[in-house]
Structures are given as structure tokens and as C-alpha cells.
């Protein structure tokens, strides 16, 4: 379980409420630096809700409330003096469906975050584009048409463009919300391969419906059920010797 690596993100009694309904309860979990961490569970179990609480993205949904603490490098991202904008700059996100900005070119998509944050140096931007696109394993495919619009790419390429866009601001954590669910098997394969190299530079938390994917790519796995974190541990342990019978039922396909 790579216990030698430092803890990057830690949650203390995290709960998420939509109005008075609690979608997630009492989650205590920690994620170590430079690892891939999978969140699994049946639909509506709260794993996506929990993921969106980490970078305060759920604040876009009215009447949502988070309790407990989410500590990023020892600082609570919900602290009263913390700006959600800063949180999101440090915690990147890749979404279920590829969502490149339709009015921007491939190049502009990648540097959108940097440029809007005020970076003007052409050299710096060029450098970032190449580094991020290489990081997302897209560089060779698009290096000759960086000025083309992002939506001209295939679905799998678009998703890697979105990964590059997230990487460009050098996030400390990268959240991935079912990043391959809208993709074909080949594109899925490429993105899974990519994760192995991505964890050299960042820490990944990925929500997935696909248990094979979780077992292939992740170092740790967290199993959610109806808003509760049922089990968390090294992926191998969770899949081979689950401690909770509900986990076992789920991973052996008895429900879900």
C-alpha cells in the first residue's frame, strides 16, 4: 500500500447533504502522494458526490452542504479563509464526458487555466502545452494541428486533451470522475496506461463503475454503498480478501 509515501489528502468525518438528505456519511479516509486511488460502488452510492466535495465542486449545486474536514497537506479545504478557487487550482478534475471548450483551439484549451490565471509568456505557454500534451500521451497525434478546435478530435483524444488541460496547471491531486465511461475500449486502454505515468507527477482519485479498471490501475480502493464508506484498503487486499461481506458481494457481482 506504499505506506512509505506521505499522506496528501485526508478526510475527517466527511458528510455531504442535499437539503436535509444525506448523500454521504462519516467518511474517514486518506490518500497518499503519487498513488492512484479508486472509488467504487453501485450507482447512487455517493462516490461521485464525495469526489466533487473534495474540490468543492458540489458548491455549484444549490442547497448542498458538507460537514467534517478535508485536509490537503494538512490544511482544511473548507477552512473559513480558504478560497474555493485556490482549492480547485490545486485539485484538478477530469469529467465523465470529454468537455473541451468548444470555442478554443487545442492549444488554447491546454493553456486555458494558465492564461486565465494571468500567464502571458509565450515561451512558458508553448512549453506547458508540449509538456501537458506529452503527459497526456496526445502530443504526437496533435502537434501539427494545435490551432484546430478541440472538438475536432475523437472522443478518446478529447478526453486526453481534457487531462492535458488539467495537468497544465500542475495540480497536486487529480480527480477523475468515470473518465472512460464514454469511451471505446481502445481509448479506455490508453487512458488506463496513462494513469501509471501520471502518478509520477500527481495523486489520482478516480471514480469508476468498472471493477476490472479499479483492480488494474489503482493502488488503493474504497468501496461506497448508499452513502457509507464500507471498506478502504490496498486494492489487492480489497479485491482478494475483503473484510466486509457487502464488499465481497459487490466485487463478485452479486449486486450492483
Amino acid at each position: 500500500m506504499n505506506t512509505d509515501r506521505p499522506i496528501r489528502l485526508q478526510t475527517e468525518n466527511v458528510g455531504v447533504f442535499y437539503g436535509s438528505k444525506d448523500a454521504v456519511r462519516n467518511v474517514n479516509v486518506s490518500f497518499r502522494s503519487n498513488t492512484v486511488n479508486a472509488l467504487i460502488g453501485p450507482s447512487g452510492c455517493g462516490k461521485t458526490t464525495f469526489l466533487r466535495a473534495i474540490n468543492r465542486m458540489h458548491e455549484l449545486t444549490p442547497n448542498t452542504r458538507v460537514t467534517g474536514k478535508i485536509m490537503l497537506d494538512g490544511q482544511d479545504v473548507y477552512g473559513s479563509d480558504v478560497d474555493p478557487v485556490d482549492v480547485r487550482r490545486r485539485i484538478g478534475m477530469v469529467f465523465q464526458k470529454p468537455n473541451p471548450f468548444p470555442t478554443m483551439s487545442i492549444y488554447d484549451n491546454v493553456v486555458a487555466g494558465l492564461r486565465l490565471a494571468g500567464e502571458k509568456s509565450k515561451v512558458k505557454l508553448d512549453e506547458t502545452v508540449e509538456r501537458s500534451l506529452r503527459g497526456a500521451a496526445l502530443w504526437d497525434e496533435v502537434k501539427d494541428r494545435l490551432k484546430a478546435v478541440g472538438s475536432s478530435l475523437s472522443g478518446g483524444q478529447q478526453q486526453r486533451l481534457c487531462i492535458a488541460r488539467a495537468l497544465a496547471v500542475e495540480p497536486e491531486i487529480l480527480l477523475m470522475d468515470e473518465p472512460t465511461s464514454a469511451l471505446d475500449p481502445q481509448s479506455t486502454q490508453r487512458i488506463e496506461d496513462l494513469m501509471e505515468s501520471l502518478k509520477q507527477q500527481t495523486t489520482i482519485i478516480i471514480v469508476t463503475h468498472n471493477m476490472q479498471q479499479a483492480s488494474r490501475v489503482s493502488d488503493t480502493t474504497s468501496f461506497f454503498l448508499i452513502g457509507d464508506l464500507v471498506e478502504h484498503g490496498a486494492t489487492e487486499a480489497v479485491f482478494q480478501t475483503p473484510k466486509d461481506e457487502r464488499t465481497e458481494a459487490y466485487i463478485t457481482g452479486r449486486f450492483g
Binding site: V85, R88, G92, M93, F95, R165
Partner: peptide
């Protein structure tokens, strides 16, 4: 999702509105 993508890059809301 475009708004979310912008916010997830750490952009303030007004920049997401004006630039995206």
C-alpha cells in the same frame, strides 16, 4: 460540464462566465 471544467482548473467564477 464546461462551467465545471473551468472551475476545476481553478478559475474564479467571473472568468469562467466571461471567458468560457
Amino acid at each position: 460540464t464546461l462551467r465545471e471544467a473551468g472551475l476545476a482548473l481553478g478559475l474564479p467564477r467571473w472568468k469562467v462566465i466571461m471567458n468560457i
